[in-house]
Simulated scan of single mutants.
Amino acid sequence: MSAQTGAVLDAGRRVPWQTLVAGGLLAGAVVLAVRHWPVLDAGADRLVVADRGWLLLAAVLTVLTWVCAAVTVQGAVREALPARRLVAVQFAASAANHVLPAGVGAGAVNLRFLMRCGLAPGRAATALAVRGTAGAVVRFVLIGVLALASPGVLRLPSVHGTTLLLVLTGTAAAGCAAVLLSRLTRVRRWLACTVADVRGVHERPPRAAALWGGSLAFAVLHTGIVLAVVRALELPLPAGRVALAYLAASSAAVLLPTPGGLGSLDAALAWTLTAAGAPAGASLSAVLGYRLLTVWLPLVPGLLVLAGLVRTKAL
């Protein structure tokens, strides 16, 4: 082996894994941007003639969603987390969430961050589960309130569809129960730790307010983004119907494990906006505008931030 070859191999061994991950993320960002360029171009063309004031408001609300996400994470743990880094992690996590399916990207980023902050893996996972549960409860309550205020907007599935859904849900629950019973000792320990963490969070009013208030604000802000885009496109839809359409669509999209809800949320949101009274083409334009602001424009910067956090070993 020549001296030059040995030097190259030694340099390769010294390259930290964080640098390799950062390079992979940057390459992924470029591939995603090129692959989905028609979507970016179409969304931009439709938004050129939209009201810029409403679009600016939607952009501001998008930035605030990352702050609210940081608040909810802080509310789910008892320990104080570094605020600036926490917000940067949420920005990076939102980008990672659009690369991996079913929230895996954001969950992995937040889990790694909490562990870097000194939390044990079990406690970090419990905190994220508590945060996710709070968000789901808030969305369920908002949907119920808006459904009562705007009757007829949501259409319940048929009796056959409901029966099938109940059967599938019961089967899944029975399977989970069987697995849990087979590991009863570990389940008891996990439940004890979970109850202790949840109790510790709710024994501190500021933490509980951050968890539940942040979850509510997060859902309201995303709803506000859709509403602002709808107003920018001059669609004559009541605010309540738009809010209900988004909350129902985003909740339904969770059932399909696509990266960031891409595809599933788009179809569900376009359908619910059309059901709320918007023309089909205008509904598609609203969805493209929402996606452009919340996904495509922040995607590459978010992945750059993620790469930087990985390289500096903050994750």
Rank of each mutant, 00 (worst) to 15 (best):
V63M: 07
A307S: 11
V226I: 13
A11S: 12
L64P: 01
A11I: 06
Y246S: 06
Q74Y: 00
A282K: 11
G289Y: 12
R123H: 12
S264V: 01
R116G: 13
G161W: 08
G107C: 07
R131E: 15
R123F: 03
R123M: 07
A76I: 03
L299V: 04
L26A: 15
G24N: 05
A22R: 02
A172E: 02
V77K: 03
V104R: 00
W17M: 09
G24K: 09
G213W: 10
Q18E: 12
P259Q: 06
D197P: 07
V48G: 01
V254A: 13
L216K: 02
V138C: 04
L265E: 01
L315M: 13
V310Y: 02
R183F: 07
S250E: 00
V187I: 08
V109S: 06
L61C: 11
R311F: 05
A102S: 15
P298G: 11
G200R: 14
V159Q: 08
L293F: 08
V287S: 06
R13C: 08
V138W: 00
L47T: 04
V230Y: 07
V220K: 01
G53H: 06
F218W: 14
C176Q: 05
T223G: 15
R13W: 14
A178H: 10
A70H: 03
M1E: 12
L181N: 05
V89Q: 12
D45L: 10
G240M: 06
D41C: 06
L265Y: 02
A219T: 07
A124R: 09
A92G: 14
V226L: 15
L165C: 09
R14D: 11
W296H: 15
L154F: 04
V104G: 00
V87F: 08
L216G: 15
C176G: 11
R84S: 13
L184C: 08
T258N: 03
A102N: 13
L191S: 13
R123L: 11
T5W: 14
A70T: 01
R78P: 02
A232Y: 12
A70V: 04
V15M: 13
E234F: 08
A210G: 06
V104I: 15
P121Q: 06
A11G: 05
R46N: 03
L64D: 00
L47K: 03
V201G: 05
A228H: 09
D45P: 00
L255Q: 05
A147E: 07
V15W: 11
A124N: 08
R46D: 12
P101V: 04
V8R: 12
A92N: 09
